[in-house]
Simulated scan of single mutants.
Amino acid sequence: MSQYRTFTAADAVEYAQRFGGLRDASSLVTAEEIGDGNLNLVFKIFDRDGISRVVVKQALPWVRCVGESWPLTLERARLEAETLTEHYRHCPQHTVKVLHYDAELAVMVMEDLSSYRIWRGELVQGRHYPQATRQLGEYLAQTLFHTSDFYLHPHEKKARVIRFTNPEMCEITEDLFFTDPYEDHPRNDYPAQLEAEVVELRNDERLRNEVAGLKHRFFSHAEAHLHGDIHSGSVFVADGSLKAIDAEFGYFGPVGFDVGTALGNLLLNYCALPGLLATREAADGREQRLQDIRTLWLTFAERFQALAAEKSRDRTLAWPDYTATWLKKVFADSIGYCGSELIRRTVGMAHVADLETIQDEAMRIECIRHAISLGKTLIVAAPHIDNIDTLIARIRQNG
């Protein structure tokens, strides 16, 4: 058995030749390292004609942007590969396909998505994919329903919760979402002009109480097998198609976390558009984001409810009115987690291109200020917003 080593481009080519599933493996000749994240090496593997055919991804044993002082378990590579494989079982049309996985090398080979574009980049450019939010809602409904208590036998569900326990990656989420932004923490990173707004976050007792509840539910509500990081940078889009990638944060947690993270990234773009596009285009784009939010939630809720009516295996949970009651709780959770995504992406360590690529510094700060304000509003108001129209009205009221 081979021992772990960090791949070079040549290693990635050789590995893809062995495990890429191509009939003519020798046609794979070059690799390009394309990873722009903090946790992994990612190589596109090209054939003799310069066409990208497969992707090789290897987990690094530390956080890339920090270095060896922040070590990470390589077990996350297994969790990612198995999460994507499980999600592919239930929603192959919207999940990247894993072709091969090696636990010792913490490496996997995946289908190539070169004909797709990263959704966040397209949103930043003002490009709209009409099908994307409906397809993302379908992905969330299929993957979260089929890994929940509605569908799985209790014995199988409990065994999977154990298998997909992901303490190190969950700790990153727990800290970056729910702790760091509300403390004077060295990992936080925000414009000095916003110090007053950030101090308000730390001192708002009602907000801190709601954030504590969100974190507690993230700790303890093992409702379904989450993607765990389903933001617009973890989604690829093409005309008529969408694929989820990057699931190393996968674990069993509250359904509203995945839904809320997806909603939050649409709202980050909503807040950023005045700094990215001309006035008329920005206004139109913001209206589209609000409709995208509506479509995403309604698709998820309607499809989950339909799946529950058709396929729930537990006789008690199959009671006709229960799914609708439970989805109201999920909706409130989703709004809270949506708000926490807005704050952690502005005050915390991990930022987004939507805001970071705004060229006018004064406008960028105003867009970040809006995101912080909206995030705070949604976290506090979440228990009192009972439908999607009320949510959209509250977003409009915030500016």
Rank of each mutant, 00 (worst) to 15 (best):
L60K: 10
F178Q: 01
V42L: 12
S232M: 15
P383E: 03
Y139V: 03
P154C: 11
W319Q: 08
F177A: 03
T279C: 06
R313K: 15
S114A: 11
S26M: 05
I368R: 14
T316C: 05
A77H: 03
I335F: 03
E281M: 14
N387A: 10
A106Q: 02
Q125M: 15
A238P: 02
V124R: 12
R134W: 02
T299G: 04
H146F: 14
G233L: 10
H90D: 11
Y322C: 00
E200G: 03
C65K: 14
W70G: 00
I51F: 08
L226H: 03
G399Y: 12
G256H: 07
A318K: 11
F218M: 10
T390S: 09
S220A: 04
L99E: 01
Q93G: 14
A262D: 01
N269F: 02
D49R: 15
C91K: 05
G250Y: 04
P383S: 11
T346S: 15
T95S: 00
H146G: 00
D204R: 07
L194K: 06
L296K: 09
A247K: 00
R23K: 09
T357N: 15
T95K: 01
F7E: 02
C338K: 13
E281S: 04
A309I: 04
A371P: 08
A282L: 00
E366F: 00
E195Y: 10
V29D: 05
R5S: 04
T83E: 01
K44G: 09
V255M: 07
S234M: 05
L267A: 12
V255E: 06
I358Q: 10
R163L: 15
V330L: 03
L84F: 00
F7V: 11
Q291G: 10
F219L: 15
I388E: 03
R53K: 14
L22P: 09
T133M: 13
F150R: 11
L72Y: 02
V96P: 13
A324T: 13
D180G: 01
L342N: 11
T279H: 12
S2D: 13
S2G: 09
Y4K: 12
S340A: 15
A81H: 11
A362M: 06
K57I: 01
L39K: 11
N265M: 04
L307H: 09
Q305V: 03
R202H: 11
V235N: 01
G37V: 01
S241H: 06
R217F: 03
S312W: 03
C170K: 07
H155V: 15
C170L: 03
R345C: 10
L113F: 00
L194V: 12
I368G: 11
I392F: 08
G121N: 14
Y139C: 13
V55I: 15
V235T: 12
V380H: 06
V255K: 06
A222Q: 06
R117Y: 07
L84S: 02
A382P: 00
A224L: 05
S373M: 09
F7R: 10
Y251C: 13
I51D: 12
G339A: 01
S220L: 04
A16W: 10
E68Y: 09
G256I: 02
